[in-house]
């Protein structure tokens, strides 16, 4: 299967980022204690990994540049619709990622009950917004399930935060 032109261009960019990662990782490795006879040292294995990643990144860049592009959707209307769906999906997932970061940041302050309820409700709303009952069910389900699993069955101590 030939990959579409857009994805190939993306692969070339990823290759450049990976090349930079390999460079940083390899340079860091040079700062570790050098090896001696009978022990290659702490830096040798990471150095080899950096070289390997660098080589693979170059391979990715070259193959993205020389590969023949696959067929893309020719109908502009359908292409625009596909792009809009993909973008909406990406935004939903990116918001959920940001919500996960916020959940971690507020977990101890708000406590697990409030934080989990809000987090589950927000994620549920990202899936569908047309039914508030579903959202409430997801929030109550998440809090109830977590409470039963961690506090009741496993006797794990979770932060109570504002309710503590």
């Amino acid at each position: 299967m030939h990959l579409p032109r857009k994805l190939l261009r993306g692969d070339a960019v990823i290759g450049v980022i990976l090349l930079a990662l390999a460079l940083w990782y390899g340079l860091e490795a040079q700062g570790f204690r050098p090896g001696r006879a009978g022990d290659p040292g702490a830096g040798m294995f990471p150095t080899l990994l950096a070289l390997l990643l660098g080589g693979l990144a170059l391979w990715l860049i070259v193959s993205a540049l020389i590969a023949p592009p696959g067929a893309e959707e020719t109908d502009p209307e359908r292409r625009a619709r596909q792009r809009a769906i993909a973008l909406a999906g990406f935004i939903r997932a990116a918001i959920a990622a940001a919500l996960s970061v916020a959940f971690v940041a507020l977990f101890e302050t708000l406590g697990y009950i409030i934080a989990t309820g809000l987090y589950a409700a927000a994620i549920s709303l990202l899936f569908r917004r047309d039914n508030l009952l579903i959202t409430l069910l997801a929030a109550a389900g998440a809090v109830g399930f977590l409470h039963l699993l961690f506090s009741v069955f496993l006797n794990a101590r979770l932060p109570m935060g504002l309710l503590g």
């Binding site: 101890e108 987090y119 589950a120 994620i123 549920s124 899936f127 039914n131 997801a138």
Partner: peptide
Amino acid sequence: IDHAVLFPIIAAVAVVAAYVSERSV
């Protein structure tokens, strides 16, 4: 089962399970 119910619960369990595994944020 609606994904809007199932996956929020999975997400919450995932994050809190990670907390419980090391008892740390």
